[in-house]
Design a protein around this nucleic acid. Structure first.
Length: 510
DNA sequence: AGTGCAGTTGACTTT
DNA sequence: TAAAGTCAACTGCAC
């Protein structure tokens, strides 16, 4: 017991006690707080599956902090009002939390909190918990800053924290989805949010599951097991990226001499780095959630979505088997491998010609691991609206042949097609005998025609006079400085020797 | 055994 | 993290 005014630790998307720089910095007298913000959970990019995951993480964090000496205080309401109440009651003058690269709403909320703190003499310290750099002036040298952060020792967990001098009210029972007015969102195969589940995923991935990561991540059949499945834990901070990166390094030593493992772990390292790289984009340009990065794409697609197309895509009823299988799998699990996420977005943006601002929130809600800083830059990239990435229009039939050659995935997730012979499974509209007997729709668009139309429109736009000039400026601000991120070194050498005197900025992979 | 040729493969370019 | 097209080199095979 103590009369020293505690430091308020505001837990946000950092629901852990290990490698928690804010907890490490706060000392032994702390008031650990989490605020359930109903206005946040009313947004179009949040969902009941994310809330359910959060609840599991919160219960774990509450118990872990209790073990240290003082359980988590959970409040529900507006962040400024709740923080003001607690700071007044405990005469708090110092608050610590982690920098958050969130969506526009949390960005504005943090500005309100900062303004309130300034006005009331409360010092609010925000610390980084990933490689994202706040107020970054230039992308030059960013990779080095990130690497330094990743190699630094983990933040020490205090052996104990002092119990509060007096009781304060906390929500014993977390509200359920209905209590937060969240729409029903069944997700029977959602990953569990607790710390033990996170640690289990991490250790099983690095010990066994990840052996074939590099080759197995592309197909939704093998990816479910071979991918790390750490994304929701990192998104909500149950694990820090740095913990994962350092565990990866130690696994690399354990698997010394095993070629597959070395390839897989190096591939995994790149994904972890891309994570921060993309989050840095939204950190630097929060408007990416609302506006096309390259403004020439504004007005290209109808801003008001075609309701029939949007609904068919959202429900996995487009009549294109592999697309529908992937969407239904995502709905049921809250997760999908990266390549198939890209295909879903590509299909919506190119074949269905839907605006990413209509489809982006739907995917955000379906992803248990929704991370705004990755989501919006990715959504724009897969829609071709950044202007600095080459147009990648996925052919969902080819992807189906490549990633689900046996049809096992389609048959499982689109059971209407279970009886279709493999020869016609990926294109049931070619099955003359049986298509009319199926309870499965014709494709909602002509795949070849739709892709060609999108391709012509976008490449036409790119050939207009001012497009490249704007693209160069965007690339300078956001483009990766890494050379050959996705190229073999021989390709880089060949390119360097070739006739091209300067790298084509338009093809820089960001 | 060498030649001609259809079909395949891979590197590279275009959209 | 794409797909489709082009082109030249290569392969297998018939004669």
């Amino acid at each position: 017991m103590s009369n020293i005014a505690p430091v308020l630790i505001w837990f946000k998307r950092d629901l852990r006690i290990a490698d928690h720089p804010a907890l490490a910095a706060a000392g032994a007298h702390v008031l650990p707080v989490y605020i359930i913000e109903p206005d946040y959970w009313a947004l179009t990019d949040t969902s009941a599956r994310q809330w359910a995951f959060t609840c599991e993480a919160l219960e774990n964090l509450r118990a872990d902090l209790a073990m240290l000496g003082q359980p988590l205080i959970i409040r529900k309401g507006d962040a400024v009002e709740e923080l003001a109440r607690l700071c007044k009651a405990y005469r708090i003058s110092q608050m610590v939390s982690h920098e958050e690269t969130g969506n526009g709403w949390t960005f504005a909320r943090d500005e309100r909190v900062a303004a309130w703190a300034r006005a009331h003499g409360v010092e609010w310290v925000e610390l980084p918990q990933s490689g994202v750099v706040r107020r970054l002036r230039s992308r030059d040298g960013w990779q080095g800053l990130r690497n330094r952060f990743m190699r630094a020792p983990l933040a020490q967990t205090p052996p104990a924290i002092a119990p509060l001098a007096r009781e304060t009210s906390t929500l014993e029972r977390l509200p359920d989805a209905r209590g937060l007015r969240l729409a029903p969102d069944p997700c029977p195969h959602r990953q569990s949010g607790g710390r033990q589940a996170a640690e289990q995923a991490l250790s099983s991935f690095l010990a066994t599951r990840g052996a074939k990561y590099r080759v197995a991540m592309s197909s939704p059949l093998s990816a479910e097991r071979a991918c790390s499945r750490l994304s929701p834990y990192i998104a909500f901070g149950v694990l820090s990226v740095r913990q994962v990166e350092q565990a990866r390094l130690s696994a690399r030593a354990d698997h010394m001499g095993d070629h597959d493992w070395q390839q897989s772990l190096s591939s995994f390292a790149k994904r972890l780095a891309w994570r921060d790289h993309f989050m840095q984009k939204l950190e630097d340009e929060p408007a990416m959630e609302y506006n096309c990065l390259h403004p020439a794409h504004e007005g290209l697609r109808p801003r008001e979505a075609d309701a029939t197309r949007l609904r068919a895509w959202e429900m996995g009823e487009t009549g294109v088997p592999f697309v529908d299988a992937c969407m239904r799998y995502l709905r049921a699990t809250g997760w999908l491998n990266f390549r198939m996420r890209a295909m879903l977005m590509s299909f919506a943006s190119y074949h269905l010609w839907l605006d990413w601002r209509n489809t982006g929130p739907i995917l955000a809600r379906l992803f248990t691991d929704y991370e705004p800083g990755i989501h919006w830059p990715q959504v724009q990239m897969q829609s071709g609206t950044t202007g600095i990435n080459t147009i990648r229009i996925y052919n969902p039939v080819k992807q189906g042949f490549d990633q689900d050659s046996t049809g096992q995935f389609i048959r499982k997730w689109v059971p209407e097609l279970a009886s279709v012979p493999l020869q016609h499974l990926h294109t049931p509209w070619t099955w003359a005998n049986g298509i009319s007997t199926l309870r499965y729709p014709e494709p909602i668009v002509d795949l070849a025609k739709a892709a060609a139309a999108a391709r012509n429109t976008l490449w036409g736009l790119r050939n207009e006079s001012n497009f490249r000039q704007t693209a160069r400026a965007i690339s300078h601000k956001h483009g990766s400085r890494a050379s050959g991120n996705d190229r073999s070194s021989s390709a880089v050498i060949r390119k360097a020797r070739g006739r091209t005197p300067h790298p084509d900025q338009l093809r820089l992979d960001i």
